[in-house]
Design a binder for these strands. Structure first.
Lengths: 336, 336
DNA sequence: ATGAAAGCGCTAACAT
DNA sequence: ATGTTAGCGCTTTCAT
């Protein structure tokens, strides 16, 4: 593979001149420019970015670390990030943590080694101080989706509390009195906040005593298992709030296996919509976060910091969620 | 950020000794090793990978270029690639082409600049010789999912012809006589091959005259629009083969809007399954390709080449597809 | 308008 | 067992 030296030799100039042509800075006479460009074309020269990056300490690369790229929510976030980053000449590298702090640390270290210019991080846990490594290194970063201790960073997340509150309120207005929430791990602020919004709505209605809270993981299995538990409880809830899309799927499967119809026998509402690209007939009543927007906005914050155009104070953006009422929720079955 | 020099100074040794400790090669006395490790810990030193990469011309990074990471099929492939790559100390960077050759070239060039060690490429077109840049550069690469001209590379893809053949055969056995296929662009071998398998099955049954072929894109809109067209055609097909998951969704939406029931009024079969993680009740009769396997296998081929352990001849792996018969297909409505 | 020297962080090759 | 030198590919700085 040719390097800048080979191009220079072929064009009969110094490497420096080639560099000037490539980067379009400094004075180059039209004649030499053409000779250099010809040489570049003939050799199919592609500059090695490692050299300049080593010098300039900029790689024009952003790191996106999410829990699992297999979840359509995160792929949509990723597209938002990628599109925004590309528009500014940046590219992204993605890592999956599978909610494991160890994997997260592996990725952060790897990406730090690679000298990425900034991070977009969905912390694997809201407890442990995932971001401290980054903070100590002084690498700009933005926290997505979840809260972590501290304030010296930008962050973007959906309004979990309000979303859960509105979803619950919707159920109460339909007449439900016994409502259950199935949520994620306690060390995820999203799991926690959604329970908080849920409880707030119930308290306001004076129904705190009739609530059920199931803590699990943000996956289908949690939805399935805890729905079965909820169905066996007394009094049996007439509505379930699934704290994310995967839990909702698990819940629906458990209800189907139990021979129950939604919403006739039991109502289901969920956090996070499923992408319209993969749903035939949107069915769930949801609190929908605009994932693409979240990715785009977070990237904007990061790029502003990198450009030195960000304000001194860190920004915390809480995106509104949209409540979409569809077919999975209805009035409770009339008790006999 | 500290560099190897800072660590060396703090430990009272030469940079070379620090390097030996980091990489665990060469002789280092237990005493100095400990001093060096202490210095590394105190300074929270993370080696800059750019230096070694510049020298060794290896970045331990693989590039994965797909059409759209938003399609669950590709995210599953991506996980297969990532898991395999990580297990061998490699990491991946992902790019989306959106089926555009221009975007694809942008990404290839960018990744080439970054000196990735190898490529996993889903070509944006089967016509233009997407891979020639890579071949000329001598960078190892594997072609995924689609065929492109030439043979000097490894490739992995699903058995599109057989999958479409079996799917069509299934419809014919149910008694369907008028069948339509809605597929992707003509310059995608997958679109092409699925039509070939479809036609082969019809020919064998002597029903070639009763077929309809709609060429579009591998997206929902194509499924929707051409299903409408098919419904208006005479004779109206009693079954539709959707050549991928997104088309199938569009088809279902069009049928729903037309007030038709599946499979009572019309049957639908599709290529590519939807991940079970995001489906409540698997409904489609499909030819399922194991996406994860595809990613894993392709990565294995690539890693073998990088390790110099691959055979001289290039390998072309055609993965079997699994026909899963579910609820979307049934006998044609009895004609009056 | 063009070129030469030096150095970004690291390590292979060669001392000692 | 440890250290020195040189160079990977490029560009900033300082000539000319």
């Amino acid at each position: 593979m040719p390097n800048i030296h080979d191009v220079a030799k072929r064009a009969g100039v110094a490497p420096m001149t080639v560099s000037r042509v490539i980067n379009n800075n400094g004075y180059v006479s039209e004649k030499t420019r053409q000779r250099v460009e010809a040489a570049i074309a003939e050799l199919e020269y592609i500059p090695n970015a490692l050299g300049p990056s080593l010098r300039s300490k900029r790689t024009m690369t952003l790191a996106l670390v999410v829990s699992d790229i297999t979840n359509p929510f995160w792929t949509t976030v990723a597209r938002g990030v990628e599109d925004k980053a590309n528009a500014h000449g940046y590219h992204i590298i993605i890592g999956n943590t599978d909610e494991s702090l160890a994997k997260q640390d592996d990725y952060l270290t790897f990406m730090l080694r690679k000298q990425v210019d900034g991070f977009l991080l969905v912390p694997a846990s809201s407890r442990s101080n995932s971001s401290s490594i980054l903070r100590r290194r002084g690498v700009p970063f933005v926290i997505l989706d979840r809260q972590v201790p501290g304030h010296e960073f930008d962050s973007v997340r959906g309004d979990s509390i309000r979303g859960a509150y509105e979803l619950t309120k919707h159920l109460l207005e339909l007449g439900h009195q016994h409502v259950a929430i199935i949520t994620g791990r306690q060390d995820h602020s999203t799991a926690y906040d959604r329970v908080a919004g849920f409880q707030q709505a119930l308290e306001e209605a004076g129904l705190s005593a009739y609530q059920q809270v199931y803590w699990g993981e943000f996956n289908q299995n949690t939805g399935y298992e805890f729905t079965r538990q909820a169905l066996n409880s007394t009094p049996r809830p007439t509505a379930i709030l699934a704290a994310n899309n995967f839990i909702a799927i698990g819940t629906m499967r458990a209800l189907r296996d139990a021979g129950l119809s939604v919403p006739e026998d039991i109502s289901v509402v969920a956090f996070d919509d499923l992408p319209t690209a993969i749903t035939i007939d949107p069915f769930f009543t949801v609190a929908s976060q605009s994932a693409y927007e979240m990715g785009k906005l977070a990237t904007e914050l990061l790029l502003a910091r990198l450009a030195g155009e960000a304000p001194d104070e860190y920004r915390e953006i809480i995106l509104p969620v949209e409540i979409i009422i569809r077919k999975s929720s209805g009035p409770p079955p009339t008790s006999k």
